[in-house]
Design a protein around this nucleic acid. Structure first.
Lengths: 355, 355
DNA sequence: CTGAAAGCGCTTACAG
DNA sequence: CTGAAAGCGCTTACAG
């Protein structure tokens, strides 16, 4: 900085004021010296040191992301979303990933040691450690900019989550617009516990509301709930189970929406095992994870969680809090991916029902 | 810091020296005051500010990760690996993710603006932008601690990559130990271009070497190479293609190793379509990506890339460079995941060959 | 309205 | 062998 100041023949603070465009400053710089300062900075290739500025302002210009390994497939997109928003503000994401609640505490402390200016905490839907929850709640209340992402465990904190309810609704609406009337929902058997499994519950609620509004009758097929997210096999088995239930149904649906794409993968497998063709015999619409939808055959038409937008929203909330505004809680609508598992309702095909 | 100093009745630098355990310092502190300082720090719950220390030492204590969106599934594990190593040193990963080489430049500049103390650059196997390559090479030569991860585009730079050759070798060895003798390799048709596709070439080389050593005859089945990594369908189709080739073979292998698990997914599908049972009729061993291996049925026995260890190694190389040592280039062996797609060679079964 | 001083929280190099 | 001073690169608050 001093080099620039010297080059122009002006004081240090003057270049600080000019480069940061600090208008309300007590330091006034005439337009021409201002221009000279800018030019000199340009020529000398000068960018203010974040280290110096940070110490002076007591800011790290880092935004902490405390993420769960469970959400590993989303991590890259979340980070990009945070980048999208923080780039202009010269903020960067500092990432802390943990595999369990003990590590969560360690990494949390590390993030505090790093003096991050805000923290985005991914609690997933997993019922977080009560001690952690209390810790987050307290610091938020004490004024620290904290945003919850992908969960609703922490009371009274700005939150960004998937719009499960809206997604359930939109899934139905799309099938209805294709002419379907008998639309079943496959969901795990714990979906009515709206506190512990409010994601499933929200999706179900959206489904139910949209069905009612369309004047259609809801039809729920339940499959075993899976709690250990690591292994895919139980999810797939859950889908196969749903397939067997579905096949037994008297009033066969022409379309089914499946909560969870690893489950949908198993559902499709199970139906194909029973010699049903997809989408000719039944349309299958997936939900949530991207990769299993792509690896299903036929590839699933599905809403998949918009992790990047979620990251953007969370970062926006964090900046709002840093500026003293109150962070807004947001629900992020998922994105469609187009597969080949959904077809318009066709009278001829579906009336030739296999009974 | 001053609070601690005052509480003990000692100067500021003294507590600095004690807390950092700086033995060779010109400041000597007697054991008892040393103990008192430590106790006071404990009581006052004092941890030195990284902001202050950073400015003083001209270090950010951040290690930059410049990662490609292509490797999104690995990002979380890579970060954890870096954490594993940098935790003790009070370093934290600052992550920059890009989707193309234009963004790569932007994010690179951002990482420099952040004054990261080292940079781990993921070039994947994608032939990186020559301008970027030159930039990385130059800064490395100028003494900046830079490590290449998942690629070998940048000359004369410490590098951490998958041990493709060793993995090819170990795949063969495992099948040989199960009694298999006719072991084919499915690989894309560009594998002989060892510069552009040195990953495939390395894997092939390991396969060939191990086959030779076991006194067995190599048998290569090629399938179309895929260059666009986003969409899974072409990979799967490539695997189906390989299945058709495999079925045509006169001297049918009892086991096949498939380079790439989305391709293996298609291969299994294609074989099952031809009514081959896996692993009864043929053992299929996968390679590389984790999730497709889990979603194949039966789940694939496969080496999958050890991204976390790669992150650890890269971080270690970065720290070595920061300490003035020369960073070591490392090859990271992949991890086995156990599926149900591989069985011991059984004479009865395989002799009842369908011809 | 301008410009030199003080301070952010540390560390290292240098005087006593 | 000890302790007070200088400095890292900025910013803001306060004297002229």
């Amino acid at each position: 900085m001093y080099d620039v100041a010297k080059a122009v023949g002006v004081s240090g603070p003057a270049v600080s004021v000019v480069l940061n465009n600090r208008l309300g400053s007590t330091i006034k710089v005439s337009p021409e010296t201002r221009a000279r300062i800018l030019r000199a900075a340009e020529e000398l290739n000068y960018t203010p040191s974040l280290l110096g500025r940070g110490l002076s302002e007591q800011k790290s210009y880092a935004i902490g992301l405390l993420l769960s390994e469970i959400n590993a497939p989303l991590v890259a997109d979340v980070i990009r979303g945070v980048q999208d928003v923080s780039n202009e503000q010269r903020y960067s994401p500092m990432v802390f990933i943990h595999g369990d609640s003990k590590e969560e505490t360690t990494e949390f402390e590390r993030s505090m040691d790093r003096q991050v200016d805000a923290l985005i905490v991914d609690t997933f839907d997993a019922p977080a450690d009560p001690a952690s929850v209390e810790r987050y709640r307290k610091m938020s209340q004490a004024g620290f900019p904290l945003v919850e992402l992908f969960g609703n465990s922490i009371p009274d904190v700005p939150r960004v989550n998937v719009d499960f309810m809206g997604d359930g609704r939109r899934s139905v609406e799309r099938l209805v617009s294709l002419g379907h009337q008998r639309i079943a929902l496959v969901v795990h058997d714990q979906y009515q516990k709206r506190i512990e499994h409010w994601a499933a519950w929200g999706f179900f609620s959206g489904y139910r509301a949209a069905m009612t509004e369309a004047g259609l009758k809801a039809s729920i097929i339940t499959a075993p709930a899976i709690t250990t997210p690591g292994d895919s096999q139980p999810f797939i088995e859950s889908g196969r189970h749903a397939a067997r239930e579905l096949i037994k149904l008297k009033d066969r649906p022409t379309a089914v929406i499946c909560y969870g794409n690893r489950r949908a993968f198993g559902l499709v497998k199970g139906l194909q095992y029973a010699a049903w063709n997809i989408p000719e015999d039944i349309s299958v619409m997936g939900y949530y994870e991207r990769e299993p939808a792509e690896l299903t055959e036929p590839p699933l038409t599905s809403l998949v969680v918009a992790a990047r937008r979620a990251g953007q929203q969370a970062a926006q909330a964090a900046f709002a809090l840093m500026e003293g505004k109150s962070g807004v809680t947001a629900a992020v609508a998922s994105d469609w991916i187009e597969g080949r598992s959904v077809a318009p309702y066709s009278l001829e095909v579906h009336s030739a029902s296999r009974i």
